[in-house]
Design a protein around this nucleic acid. Structure first.
Length: 255
DNA sequence: ATGACTGAGCATCTCAGA
């Protein structure tokens, strides 16, 4: 089963890119983030490629979706357990092929001052609780998406971010560890422990040309799925296309 | 020299992204 995640930075701008990638790679399930539109504005043009869409949209910002060529049912459209619910479209959970598959767009945390960062940490704690509940139930699951976390200093080009950035702050990394250390597997690192593999290159400052990037798009696997992992790789070439997203798709194979 | 972009929206500027 080929699973993928891609922050497309506007699905309306990136519809041709997504269509090309679906045709070339043919993932079974692709989670999208930052679709940046309300649900009715989501492009209809993936159905003719054999993909069914489920969309959690909002105006202007955020927004997640899933495209799948296998049957699935949507089980959650918001992260359970946030103190006052979640007004932002950042979470979709489905069941497909006996698996629970979760797509997330974790808050960046650099905007909105202290409250914005607190929201990121609260979101991470709620995600940890969700993963703990699924582990307790022995549900095989995967969490894919834009985590907005560089887990270690090996996960970004030196100088690409200041140490105060919300993607690398110690509290951010501690929250990420508390999630992974429940017993999940960081799929890309499991297969490529030391490689410099980025999933994001900023539009600014010639980051792509200098190969100055971040690894922030991840897949975390429950134990049963981690046993089945055979491939994990960002599709770097996509960043070199015309008018690309600043993130590339990341593909995982579960046999 | 630490600059340099992109997208959405009551839009020719502001906010957000990371």
């Amino acid at each position: 089963m080929k699973l993928a995640t891609w922050n497309v930075n506007s699905v309306r701008q990136r519809e041709p890119h997504v269509r090309r990638w679906l045709q070339r790679v043919q993932p079974d399930v692709l989670f999208l983030q930052e679709i940046k539109c309300e649900t009715p504005q989501f492009p209809a043009g993936f159905a003719d490629l054999g993909y069914t869409a489920a969309v959690v949209g909002q105006k202007s910002y955020n927004g997640v979706a899933v495209l799948a060529r296998v049957p699935f049912t949507v089980t959650h459209t918001a992260l359970p357990g946030l103190p006052e619910g979640d007004a932002q479209a950042r979470y979709i959970e489905i069941e497909a092929d006996g698996l629970t598959l979760i797509g997330i767009y974790l808050p960046n945390g650099n905007s909105g001052g202290d409250a914005g960062y607190a929201y990121k940490l609260a979101w991470m704690e709620a995600l940890r609780a969700r993963a703990a509940a699924l582990l307790d139930a022995e549900t095989p699951f995967a969490i894919l998406g834009d985590f907005n976390v560089c887990p270690t200093d090996a996960d970004f080009t030196p100088g690409a971010l200041p140490p105060t950035d919300a993607l690398v702050r110690p509290e951010t990394r501690a929250a990420y560890r508390s999630l992974v250390w429940l017993g999940l597997t960081d799929a890309l690192r499991a297969l490529h422990p030391t490689a410099k593999l980025w999933t994001f290159w900023d539009y600014q400052a010639g980051a792509w040309q200098r190969d100055s990037g971040l690894r922030i798009d991840h897949a975390l696997l429950s134990p049963a799925l981690a046993e089945r992992l055979t491939e994990a790789m960002p599709d770097k070439a996509v960043r070199g296309e015309d008018q690309p997203s600043d993130h590339v798709p990341v593909l995982f194979n579960i046999n």
